[in-house]
Amino acid sequence: MVSSESDERLESYGADIGARSRPIPRAREWLLVEGDRVVVAALLLVGVFVVLVVLHDVGVISFVNSNSVTRVASGMIAGTFSLVTLVVSINQLILSQEFATAGSAQKRLESVIGFRADVADEASVAASPVSQTKLLELLVESIARDAAAVEDAVADHDEEVRRAITRYTNIVQSETGRIGETLEHTSFGTFRAVLAATDYDEDWQLYVGTHLRRAYDASLSPTATERLEDLLESLKLFHVAGEQFRTTYLQRELTRFSQLTVYCGVPAILSAILVGLLYADVTGPSVNIAVLPYVSIGLIGVVLSPLTLLVSFILRTTTITRRTASTGPMLPQKGPEEGPFDVSAGDGGMPDGKAEPTREERENR
């Protein structure tokens, strides 16, 4: 018999992006992935401004030495030029991936057409949707339908087989329902849609389904085996579609970042120049000494705007990449002992009684 403890270990060990409930982890998730990148960059600028004002008010820093300020301004000009140049180079690198010869373009087109044909066959529709979000919705519906078919196919099996398979299909249907509702109210290009695709743990479900398929190979009827294979195939197709969706979104995100950096780059360079010019008069600063520190701090904030954009965008892209850096059921972000099945060579049985980490332990990783 499969114990209830073993049943619980069939639950997802996936990326858990956005799955934080406590205040501090939730705030961290908003900062890293959920928050609008422009808003995050603006908050970082406000934080820098507040810190500089406080340091000035307590006497830690000052803006009375013209030589020091002009040297800082020169460094900011050089740094901003370098940052903008680097971002433009990254943008050119992204664009270069879109250039292709006729042969490469034909192979790319044929692979896309072939994939869409596979999705249409698996979902039993005439043609797969053009919209990537709708395509993911269709695959989610196909996964839910296949999971229900597997559950029906094992209804007359032994209790051990029926209990394990039903537990698995219930989890799959619950997850597809949650992701399906999110995708239904989103559109392509929004991070909410990417978050939904990333949050769905098809790799883990594929792993568990493959294990159950092999563990109960002799006990499953031909119909149940066929239905389970259909479910695994739908999960594979969702994985491919999700990877393409994430890749396309990240390309658009990095292109948007390049545009915003160029927009902010010119004002940043002009602000850095203006900081130096404020102290260029031989008679001293050309602004009233009482407001000079705050004017300088404000200009410094403008100079740092490209840097805060870089920080906010890179935080999201690197977090998504790190948490989804896998091909199939390989989860490098997890610990080596995490998993519901304790297996060894030649062992085709179900998992032993090894306890899974608690949800709190998984959230803190």
Rank of each mutant, 00 (worst) to 15 (best):
H239W: 03
A218G: 03
S234A: 15
E226V: 05
A268C: 06
V275G: 04
L250C: 05
F245T: 08
A272M: 07
L237I: 05
P285Y: 00
F238W: 02
E233Y: 09
L250T: 14
L206G: 12
T223F: 03
E233A: 12
T210R: 12
T223P: 01
S219E: 14
Y207A: 07
H239S: 15
D199M: 07
A241K: 00
D217S: 11
R252L: 10
A268N: 03
V208R: 01
Q251A: 12
V240E: 15
L232R: 15
I273R: 06
D281T: 03
G276S: 05
H211E: 06
Y249C: 06
S271T: 09
R213L: 09
G276A: 06
T225G: 12
L231N: 10
S234I: 07
S221A: 04
L232C: 05
V240I: 15
A224H: 02
G209I: 01
I269P: 01
R213G: 01
L231T: 10
L206I: 00
V262I: 15
S219M: 06
G276T: 03
C264W: 13
R213A: 13
L206S: 09
Y279V: 00
V282L: 11
V208P: 02
Q205I: 03
Q244Y: 09
S258V: 11
P267V: 02
Y200W: 11
C264H: 12
S221N: 04
I273P: 02
R246L: 13
R256W: 10
F245M: 10
A268L: 08
V208F: 10
L270F: 11
A272W: 09
V275I: 15
F238C: 06
I269M: 12
L250K: 10
A218I: 08
E253W: 07
L235R: 02
T247K: 13
C264T: 13
A224W: 01
G265Y: 00
D281W: 07
L277M: 14
L250W: 04
L274C: 12
A268M: 08
E226K: 13
T223V: 13
L260S: 11
T248A: 14
T248L: 14
E243G: 15
E202I: 03
G284N: 05
V262T: 14
S271L: 04
P267Q: 00
L270A: 14
L270K: 06
C264A: 15
Y279Q: 00
Y207G: 11
E226M: 05
L274H: 07
F257C: 10
D217L: 08
W204L: 00
Q251C: 06
D203L: 03
Q205F: 14
K236F: 05
Y279P: 00
Q205K: 10
T223I: 11
R213W: 08
F238T: 06
L206C: 01
V208K: 00
Y263G: 02
L278V: 15
A280V: 04
D281P: 01
D281A: 13
H239C: 07
A272R: 12
Q251V: 08
I273K: 10
P222Q: 01
Q251R: 15
R246N: 12
F238Y: 15
Q251S: 13
E202G: 04
Y263R: 15
A215N: 01
T225R: 14
D203F: 09
L220P: 05
C264F: 13
A215W: 00
V282P: 01
D199H: 09
Y279W: 06
T225P: 00
T261C: 12
G276I: 02
